[in-house]
Design a protein around this nucleic acid. Structure first.
Lengths: 144, 144
DNA sequence: CTGTGTGCAAACACTTTGCAGGTGT
DNA sequence: ACACCTGCAAAGTGTTTGCACACAG
């Protein structure tokens, strides 16, 4: 589905040297649901040849080079999600997330931007994390 | 400043049996800055006679009985803050928070409610966590 | 006497680092 | 030869639990 060249290009765009493992990780993330964010453990389970510390360093590198954004959904583990190509976020997503209290999946609501809020005088804005909790559409359907 | 009776009352209001330790913890939280949220470690340091597991269980109890709300500010440790009397939150604050990237303090912006967002069809709302990151007014002043 | 509360120690989950060996240029 | 990359093991951090004793009703 995704050619090696396509993936290498995407890494190079962000000044990430395309090693075998990085290509593997990026390919997997491209294949996974783009509207969901995954924890390190999620990825480890889907890429069981790769050591978790390597995965951690790979994701940290991806994050530092703005290829993925991270979300703290309050689950106790950080979730990662691929940035859209040409994404303007600076490591933290500029959109809202949703964390399902039943299946514990975290969804990216790409279309819902984090609203602008006027902070009190003296407080400067760097980034924001806006996460909803509730029951996702899949779980609420299967509960009926 | 706060009478024993006042504090016991506040506990009883939430159906929390007023033990010596719980009174101590609540008093300390009342004495601390109400516009800030504190981690378990913060409280442990200010109440160094109390064991951290007792403190954990005390805060969990306070949280379950809606006396404090909790915030995940992305620092890796949960912060707690006293609910205002008669607060309508259900454990999660209904207002916005601000986490300073320099001093790492977390502020409650009680006056800024979390905005209402229309979630996609099928997703139900339970609670929300909205945290800004940046430099707080104290740090930005002292940097000049 | 019984149930609740507390302190201590240890388990736990997730993240992060040190180091030694491997890889590619 | 060199800088970078990877796997393994272990340390670190914050949260949570098990258990035995203390205390109040």
């Amino acid at each position: 589905m995704y050619s090696e060249k396509e993936i290498e290009e995407r890494l190079s765009e962000r000044n990430i040297r395309p090693t075998a493992i990085r290509i593997l990780v990026l390919r997997k993330m491209l294949e996974m649901n783009q509207d969901e964010a995954f924890s390190l453990l999620d990825l480890e389970n889907r890429l069981d040849t790769i050591d978790k510390s390597t995965l951690f360093r790979t994701l940290t590198l991806f994050h530092d080079n703005l290829l993925v954004h991270s979300i703290d959904d309050g689950s106790g583990s950080i979730k990662y999600s691929l940035c859209k190509r040409g994404c303007e976020c600076f490591g933290e997503a500029s959109h809202v997330h949703f964390s399902c209290t039943l299946c514990h999946r975290t969804f990216c609501f790409e279309k819902i931007a984090i609203p602008r809020i006027d902070l009190p005088v003296g407080f400067s804005y760097e980034s924001a994390n806006f996460v909803f909790k509730g029951v996702c559409s899949v779980c609420s359907r299967s509960q009926k």
